[in-house]
Amino acid sequence: MNLLPTDEQVQLVDAAKSFLEGEAPMERLRPQYGQVGNHDGKLWPQLGELGFLGIGVAEEHGGLGLGAAEETLVFREYGRHLVSPGILGLVLAGRLAAGDAALTEKILAGKAKVGLSIRRQGGGWHLLEAKDADYVVSYSEEGSELRAVSDYVEVTDIMCMDSHLLLQRAKLSAAKPLRAVKGPELYHVAIQLLSAYAVGVAEGALRMGVEYAKIREQFGKVIGSFQAIKHKCADMAIWAEVASCQVAFSSVVVADKRADAGFQVRASNLVAIDAALKNGATNIQVHGAIGFTAETEAHVYLKRAHVLDTLSGSLREQRTGMLRDPVPA
């Protein structure tokens, strides 16, 4: 038993880190307020070239043949950089496409864009990052599907609370999905990676808040020396640590396809979304008025946390599920 990444896993994380620092700087999230849309689609071919889109895809299908543990480590980095959640669409599509060589190749190379669909309360669907996409992925415990974006009809654009993302309402036509799998396995991967992304959001907000607390001065001192601020930062550190440990644990459980994957992944989701929401909010408070503006990215961490919550089927739904499974031995 060892929850620390191996040397190979550390290398993978370092590669992701240096790529994102160069190509996805946080400054890209500081335009004037308004519906901004997703800039990150231009990262997909580069990530494809580096092999990141096929980490969990078997080697015979053109992937790296690794698993959920490695994907988790990389998704944490995506979360820190607030990379478009379209990345999840791509990664899930890569798995769903296995068996269709041409489709797999296109997706693993990042030559396609893949949106995500979420069932709306009262009927219909929400589509996220699907406006300029070729495909859309949906996932649930019953099964997961990859569809052509044209399967969705009566599509209307809606302003998204997280203004860096493209949101739409739509209905689903009777068209058959391109690819479909039954059972919860891919759903567990999706929730695991959303949770890993949420850990990155929690850590990114923590880092941003702590950095600001070290330089911002009031009453002649940096505000991080005041316990009122210091303890808020400590709380952020605690929540991020709780979430990152559980997400690391469940990543191995999912990779090993253990019977308790559902339980462990849900636990990860509950603590990681909770940490992302809390740290997103606390980071804004630590920043004070500037945190309430669109001139820093503090607000984006919070909004992205809400997006992750929704993409996970919401904390409310996950909590109901959490008590359904027996505690694993």
């Binding site: 038993m1 620390l4 640590e241 709780v242 559980q246 644990f249 603590v271 996950q318 008590l323």
Partner: peptide, 24 residues
Amino acid sequence: GARLAQLRAEWAATRAMTYMVVSK
């Protein structure tokens, strides 16, 4: 129920934290 669910997740996370302490 909602509180119990969150607590169950947090105790699972505590176990993971303990495993991390051992790993470190």
